[in-house]
Design a protein around this nucleic acid. Structure first.
Length: 275
DNA sequence: ACCCAGGAAGCTC
DNA sequence: GAGCTTCATGGG
């Protein structure tokens, strides 16, 4: 089993900050399900031990551990008064690098919902479409590809998606017929976002999440209800702003660090009630 | 019963 | 383009 030493990494803060939904803790171990993989992982201070059901999956990249400028980013965002407490308290919170399709599907399900329900929805989708996968006695289901959902969208019934069901079905169809995330990855922030927002169920905020969590756009600043409230509280200029304007404000304020800033603000606001 | 949830789409103006 | 309404569902 691989054991590594990781500085400036908090598995707990990273997992609990709402980037990814299919994971759970059992004692000291955390089980993360992503794509067709299960990762079993624990952290004891700087010592990380993990194993993965596939040996060709780059766990460290997935966890955001290969971001060589993390310390610099943390230092820069810590200079903002708004982020001092959050950056100290959740030092080691990383932006993970998810697979784009699963990330897209996850955040289509996230709109006007809550994390517990999103997790339930995604697990339901996986168990209906996906193959069973196992690791060390832990069993789960692989997340289906876009093509697998597009081939039988009626199976989404009963997954509890509500009105998001048709968005996911339509987007699965589009993604499986000629869409290329690697092409989007090479575009500018504006062009990539514009392209993603053509997908049903993908608006400003979901597009920003997909770009930040799976396509490497660290300047994305997703604004949900929590970020909206936190920004209004901290910046008087934001009080009368729409979510779209607040996102622009955040991108200008934090630049390339906007994604990290957003993730710390989000986690802090949700966990500490803004205190 | 009432309110909210990691919002988006479809209206109107 | 900016504001308002509607959209299923589960949990507090």
């Amino acid at each position: 089993m691989p054991t590594i030493t990781a500085k400036n990494f908090s598995l707990k803060a990273t997992l609990e900050s709402g980037q990814i939904f299919r994971w759970e803790q059992q004692g000291e171990w955390h089980y993360i399900v992503t794509g067709k993989n299960i990762i079993r992982i624990r952290q004891d201070e700087e010592r990380i031990s993990y194993q993965c059901s596939s040996d060709d999956f780059d766990v460290q990249k997935f966890l955001g551990l290969k971001d060589s400028s993390y310390e610099k980013t943390l230092a820069e965002i810590s200079r903002h008064r708004q982020l001092k407490s959050a950056a100290a308290k959740y030092k080691g919170l990383r932006i993970m690098q998810q697979e784009p399709w699963e990330c897209t599907a996850s955040f289509i399900c996230s709109s006007f919902s809550n994390i517990k329900r999103i997790t339930k929805n995604l697990n339901a989708i996986a168990s209906k479409f996906g193959k069973q996968i196992k690791l060390e006695g832990y069993a789960s289901y692989a997340f289906p590809t876009a093509a697998e959902i597009a081939a039988n969208p009626a199976k989404l019934k009963g997954c509890g998606l509500g009105y998001r069901e048709k968005y996911l079905a339509e987007t699965a169809q589009k993604i499986s017929s000629g869409w290329s995330y690697s092409r989007i990855r090479r575009k500018s922030y504006e062009q990539a976002k514009k392209q993603l927002m053509k997908l049903p169920g993908v608006g400003e905020k979901v597009a920003d999440c997909i770009m930040l969590f799976s396509l490497g756009f660290t300047e994305a600043f997703p604004v949900d209800t929590w970020i909206g409230k936190a920004m209004k509280q901290e910046h008087a200029e934001c009080r009368a702003m729409s979510a779209k304007k607040t996102a622009e404000y955040g991108r200008k304020l934090f630049g390339k660090n906007a994604g990290y800033a957003q993730q710390f603000i989000y986690h802090y606001a949700r966990s500490c009630g803004g205190k």
